Amino acid sequence: MDTDRGTGTDPLMARARLLWESLAGVPVSFASRGGPTVVTAPASALAPPGWLGTVLLGDAAVVTAPSDGVAHTVRRALTGVATPSLTDPGAVAGVLPVAEVLGPATLAYLSGDAFRPSPPGAGATDRLPPGHGDLVRLLASVSEEDAGECGLDEITSPAFAVRDGGTVVAAAGYRDWPHGTAHLCVLTAPHARGRGLARRVASAATAHALAAGRLPQWRARPAASRRVAWALGFRELGSQLSVRGVQSPTIS
Rank of each mutant, 00 (worst) to 15 (best):
W20P: 01
W20C: 02
W20H: 14
G25D: 01
V26H: 05
V28M: 02
S29V: 04
S29H: 10
S29M: 03
F30Q: 11
A31M: 05
G35I: 05
S44P: 04
P49Q: 07
W51T: 05
G53Y: 04
T54Y: 01
L56C: 07
L56I: 07
G58D: 06
G58N: 11
G58P: 10
A60G: 10
P66V: 05
D68S: 10
H72F: 09
A77S: 05
L78C: 03
T79H: 08
S85K: 09
S85P: 00
G94V: 03
V95C: 05
L96A: 03
A99G: 06
L102N: 03
P104T: 04
L107G: 06
A108F: 08
L110K: 13
S111P: 06
G112K: 09
D113G: 09
F115A: 06
P117I: 07
G121C: 11
G123P: 13
G123L: 03
D126M: 00
R127M: 06
H132R: 05
G133K: 00
L138F: 03
L138P: 09
L139T: 00
S141I: 00
V142R: 13
A147K: 13
E154I: 15
F160E: 00
V162T: 15
R163A: 01
T167W: 11
V168Y: 00
R175G: 07
G180V: 09
G180I: 11
A182Y: 09
H183G: 10
L184I: 14
C185V: 08
L187F: 01
L187P: 14
R193Y: 13
G196W: 14
L197H: 05
L197M: 13
R200Q: 15
R200C: 12
V201L: 07
V201E: 02
A202T: 15
A202F: 11
S203E: 04
A204V: 06
H208S: 12
A209N: 10
A209R: 04
A211M: 06
L215T: 13
L215R: 07
R219P: 02
R219L: 07
A223Q: 10
S225W: 15
A229P: 14
A229N: 13
W230E: 13
L232E: 09
G233Q: 12
G233R: 15
R235K: 12
R235S: 08
S242I: 04
G245D: 02
V246E: 01
S248M: 03
